[in-house]
Nucleic acid binder design. Structure first.
Lengths: 207, 207
DNA sequence: CACTTCCGGAACGGTCCCGTCTCGTATGGG
DNA sequence: CCCATACGAGACGGGACCGTTCCGGAAGTG
């Protein structure tokens, strides 16, 4: 969280820390301020270190004492988003899939979440490290949860076993994702998760 | 293309244009430069009018003579992306859907296209006008093409008629879109379109 | 040919930001 | 208690960009 963790390869003991300790409140205040600004649609470009410090009510030097620059700060901001995805608890695979999509829907409804996602997407080209961090801390866990449910369904016969779980995950997730990205909380109505899952399960061709 | 078209509500006659006419080459040079820079991963933030003019080999005043600011310029850049989507030419609905997705795949493979898309997504919150323009000039036509094919399929019995064409379009399009957004030309392999269409048509549940 | 407008280049004052540094003060470990 | 370190505030020089303005020259129109 302090950012030093990203660079401090100091394997040695941290030794004795003399003097006033760093306030943990500052770390959270800064990260929280960044999230709030992104949420308000500020855009990572207009986010200057100066403005972040100002709006967080924090000295600029205090920010630079913790993070080497905007890139390092953003990395920690993304790290702070790590979140537990719901485990499989439904009666059948279909319900588990709906639950996972419903989790995504509620996240997409939160301005914070979709704003951060948009920000990350915008940086895919320019700052691969940022995207990699987001993928590792947020995306990977979700994908793994989906694929686990799908594999379970394949074993139990509820899901065709001749399909690639990676492609299947995309088919389930990306409709929700696209709407959250493009339409921002609109177009994520109640019941959307069920419609996506059921349509995918049944297929589009008539029986 | 000149940008004045966006603001010039001057319904009156353009009257006689005396003096040296504006060079159309400048318009295209500027727009092309913006596209090239986006393509190189520069990001709309680092795109300053100053830099655009410099890299286009054009006087800054010349740019400001045509566009009121960066927003107006970007609007024209998006407008320049209008493109014809392939019409329905396949033997069956399935082939038409594959053709449309294949069109999207080739666009996603082009760095220019995915870069612009990422840029637009990043601005959904901050500049709704930009997104609206992109939606009207690019997205709307594609969606309409998809929905037309789907309606045709419903009429001919190749597609279930009890489903919403809007949701169906999302189901077909968004997997391709998400991959182009997140993975940038990787992960768009040959044959992906067929796999998406066929999986959606058949359904995920075993027969 | 005369005149008008456009062209690239360059400079302007103004604003914002960066990253560092210095204040005077607050705070907690040894 | 002492002193190292953190804190908020802000000044600093350096740099980038904005949008405007001027220049000298180029290029069409009448």
């Amino acid at each position: 969280m302090t950012g030093e963790g990203t660079t401090s390869a100091s394997a040695g003991a941290p030794a004795e820390r003399r003097g006033r300790p760093r306030s943990p409140a500052v770390d959270t205040a800064v990260v929280e301020t960044v999230l709030r600004l992104l949420e308000d649609g500020v855009g990572v470009a207009e986010l200057s270190m100066e403005r972040i410090a100002r709006e967080a009510g924090v000295g600029k030097a205090t920010v630079y004492r913790r993070w080497a620059g905007k890139e390092a700060l953003m990395l920690d901001v993304l790290r702070s988003l790590d979140e537990a995805v719901p485990g499989p608890a439904g009666a059948c695979v279909r319900d588990d899939l709906v639950a996972l999509l419903e989790f995504l829907r509620r996240r997409g409804l939160a301005k914070r979440s979709s704003a951060v996602l948009r920000t990350v997407v915008a940086q895919v080209q320019a700052r691969p490290a940022l995207w990699a961090e987001y993928h590792d801390t947020v995306v990977a866990a979700r994908r793994e949860a989906f694929e686990a449910v799908l594999r379970r369904g394949m074993a139990s016969g509820e899901i065709r076993a001749d399909l690639d779980t990676e492609l299947l995950t995309d088919l389930f997730v990306s409709p929700m994702l696209s709407r959250a990205l493009f339409h921002e909380w609109r177009e994520l109505p109640e019941g959307l998760s069920e419609r996506i899952v059921d349509t995918l399960l049944e297929g589009v061709r008539p029986a």
